[in-house]
């Protein structure tokens, strides 16, 4: 059910944005929009399906903690 809602939301976003881009013949803008939306959609879908996605904050935590070890504050 969530996935169906999610797909409808995506279709809504595409229908909202694409007509203006086509009318203005902004092909590069459309490519960027579709690329970013596709990536965002995929990420969201994987999260809904509860697939393990690498967490960038984990890397930030480890890096800062490494410096804590080097320089004890």
């Amino acid at each position: 059910m969530i996935i169906v809602g999610y797909i409808f939301a995506l279709i809504g976003i595409i229908l909202f944005e694409i007509p203006t881009l086509i009318l203005n013949k902004s092909w590069w803008e459309m490519a960027v929009f579709l690329g970013l939306t596709g990536f965002a959609f995929l990420l969201g879908l994987l999260m809904i399906l509860q697939v393990n996605i690498p967490n960038p904050v984990y890397l930030i935590n480890k890096t800062v903690e490494y410096f804590f070890d080097l320089v004890p504050i």
């Binding site: 976003i13 203006t20 881009l21 902004s26 459309m30 969201g44």
Partner: peptide, 21 residues
Amino acid sequence: LKSYLPVVLPIGILMICLSLL
């Protein structure tokens, strides 16, 4: 890009994904 409008909504979705993740 000629306008920043096309990237607003995808960036919003990505921001939601990152804040949840």
